[in-house]
Write a protein that binds this DNA or RNA. Structure first.
Lengths: 128, 128, 128, 128
DNA sequence: GTGGTCTAGACCACC
DNA sequence: GTGGTCTAGACCACT
């Protein structure tokens, strides 16, 4: 379900947050879907429950999920702002990367075709 | 010259690295330009020289600058070997970002025009 | 475990790097083996933890080990991408050394047999 | 005449020593040949005369050259030991490099052919 | 003057 | 407990 990479220096709980966010924002997880319990997920990923706890707590603070005592954690109905913030972050990232690619003289066309390829390849797929 | 943000949780040495990289990549600093000495910059930013040292050393390992004992630190000219390695890294980065942009349904055209804008804007500029 | 030579002018952290590299390369340390923690090794060698930190960080950048905050440092499994880069570096090194051996008129056969000896000696050993 | 590389972190005076040693040991410079004066060489390489001075002084201590007050510096008649020491250093280097190449699974044949290529290519040349 | 190494000791974030 | 960042201050090597 989730992919953790210990060699990546981003903390485990951040990796979990990131991946859940993406699933929520992209619609893989829909509002009021139940997400795995802390203990369940900890067992699945063979990591410490505290780490999951921390991820869930922050996701709740940021408004992505909500917890119901005794029942579990659930996806929040999406506020448009959340998606916009995420999008803005990604575009800023993109700009920095592209600027460096330009610096090392990777041709414009090469960058464009990579992007075209990505969008095309998934086109028949889960692009609902 | 450089702006540090103490509130930001990213390490100081990373902030320095980022900003110098941007200046190099955007052409503000050109190959063989001398950058401030370790002590000089430390004094300017009122931080410990070791922190600057660390930033410079990593920039050197990543191929952006080179340091000469007794003389100072300088901007590196582009090298074909390093370029290829770096290019691969950047394209992987790009792919990941674009893929996520697609997931959150940012239209293809919007991504393309951002890139076009970046490449065009520098075209008449310091591409001499 | 590791032997430091204070008379040697090569920096302590380089000596540590070298010895760990040799242990990894020769197979004494295997992929995902845990190596001593920063503080542990510092205590064993009675040197400052920062010095160990520096050695470990560089070994990580060079792809020999990976560090996980809160858990420790571990030997990296061979990765194809890194391998290619490293291979190029090593072959360049080799060429330079061999060229100079030729200049001082060391016969071809002597060089070849040294290499043959190295490859053979490990063949029946830990190449399992 | 000599090639200096400021990006290489080996000190300038070491680079000069290395290259002169190679020329002497390989016979490009013969016993009692005059080598450039300190000032001359400093001008040629556009570096500080002190740096040359240091290189020459150490070469003299190590027995590769001798200076005659008012006349200049000259190559010493070669002692067999000197060449042997150099050779031993190079072979140790070679062994370490080859061992790492083996570790990253570069095949024996590939290493051998590189060496063969180097020896062959220079065969008709200055291998007098 | 420059970069580079090292120590001692502190504090933080993560697991 | 772990790794990672930072400071203060020292000393060395090179130009």
């Amino acid at each position: 379900m989730l992919q953790l990479n210990p060699k990546d220096h981003t903390p485990i709980y951040e990796q979990i947050k990131e991946q859940l966010k993406t699933m929520i924002v992209s619609g893989v997880l829909k509002p009021d879907d139940k997400i795995p319990s802390v203990r369940e997920l900890a067992q699945m990923l063979t990591i410490n429950p505290n780490t999951i706890q921390k991820a869930y707590k922050e996701l709740e603070l940021e408004g992505f999920i909500y917890s119901v005592r005794g029942k579990g954690s659930f996806v929040t109905a999406q506020d448009k702002n959340l998606r916009n913030i995420r999008q803005q972050d990604l575009l800023t990232d993109l700009e920095k990367t592209v600027r460096e690619l330009m610096y090392i003289q990777v041709p414009y066309q090469q960058v464009i075709s990579l992007i075209e390829k990505i969008y095309k390849e998934e086109d028949g797929g889960n692009n609902d």
